[in-house]
Design a protein around this nucleic acid. Structure first.
Lengths: 129, 129
DNA sequence: TTAACTGTACTATATATGTTAGTACAGTTA
DNA sequence: TAACTGTACTAACATATATAGTACAGTTAA
C-alpha cells in the first residue's frame, strides 16, 4: 500500500497515521471505505500488528476513521464545523512555514503563485469530486 | 527567555530548537547576536546543561547558529542560495497544510487572503529591517 | 598569572517511548 | 462451524530523552 522508513526518527505508527491522513484528506480513500485489516497490513508491511493497531487507534482518536469490532476500520466522513481549533493550529503552522520560506529567500510573489496554483488544481479539497 | 512544556511529547531539546529557530527566522535575534550561555539558560529554565547543549548542537547542525569554544554561541547570518532542498521540503509542507485546511472547510479565498495579509505585514522576512 | 567565564566531551543512571512476540476474547459473516 | 474482524493484555527488548557529575581546553578581564 505504501512505504515505511524504518530508520526514520519518526515512529512507524506515526508514519502510518500521516500516510492514511494524507489519503483521506486528499480523497484518495473515500468516506466509509474500509482500511486494510490490522493483521493483513501488518503482514504486508512486515510490521507487528500491535503497531498497526496503535496507528488505527490514533487515527480514530483524531477523527479520521472509525472502527467496528468484528467488521473493520473505515474512513470517517468529514464533518463540517467543530474544526475551529484545528484550523487555528493549521494557520499557525502556515505562518511558520511562510516565514521560513521568506527567510530562505523565497519572494512573496513566488509563495502566492505557488498556493494559487495548488488551489486552482483543486488539490486536497472535495473540488475534484 | 521563554517557556517549556515538560509534559509535551516533544522533547525539551526539540522545543528549544524550535523556539530559537523562530526567534532567528523572525529576526528577533539578529545575526551574530549571542545566545545565552549553556549553563545560564540551563539555570533559568531549570533544565540540565546537557539538554541545552544538545539543542545548541542541533541548531548548529541545522545552520542557524555557530559556536566558538571559550566565547559563546551566536546567530548565524542567513546565507542566500543552497536552500533549494529546504525550500522543496517547505513547499511540500505548505501543500499538505493547505490541503488539510480545505478538508476542514476553509475556502480558497480565505487561505489566499490570510497569506497575503501575512506577507503584507512583512512577517518573518527581512522586510522589516 | 589567576579567576571566571565560554563550549565541549564523557560516563553512568533513570525513565519514557516504540516495537516485537505471543496469547486471548468477543463480534461478524459466509 | 470456520475464518475473518477489532481489541486487550503481559512480557521483553531497544532506543531516545533527561539528569547528574566530572573534566578539559579556549577566552577574557582583573
Amino acid at each position: 500500500m505504501f512505504e515505511l522508513d524504518l530508520r526514520s526518527r519518526s515512529p512507524v505508527y506515526e508514519q502510518l497515521v500521516e500516510k492514511f491522513k494524507e489519503l483521506i484528506i486528499n480523497n484518495v480513500m473515500k468516506p466509509d471505505e474500509q482500511l486494510p485489516a490490522v493483521r493483513v497490513l501488518a503482514g504486508e508491511l512486515t510490521v507487528n500488528p500491535n503497531t498497526i493497531q496503535k496507528a488505527y487507534r490514533e487515527l480514530e482518536h483524531r477523527g479520521y476513521i472509525y472502527s467496528v469490532p468484528g467488521k473493520g476500520s473505515f474512513v470517517r466522513p468529514a464533518v463540517p464545523g467543530n474544526n475551529a481549533a484545528k484550523l487555528r493550529t493549521l494557520e499557525e503552522e502556515l505562518s511558520r512555514i511562510v516565514s521560513e520560506m521568506l527567510y530562505l529567500g523565497s519572494t512573496p510573489q513566488e509563495i502566492i503563485t505557488r498556493i494559487k496554483t495548488q488551489l486552482a488544481k483543486g488539490e486536497g479539497g472535495k473540488l475534484d469530486d
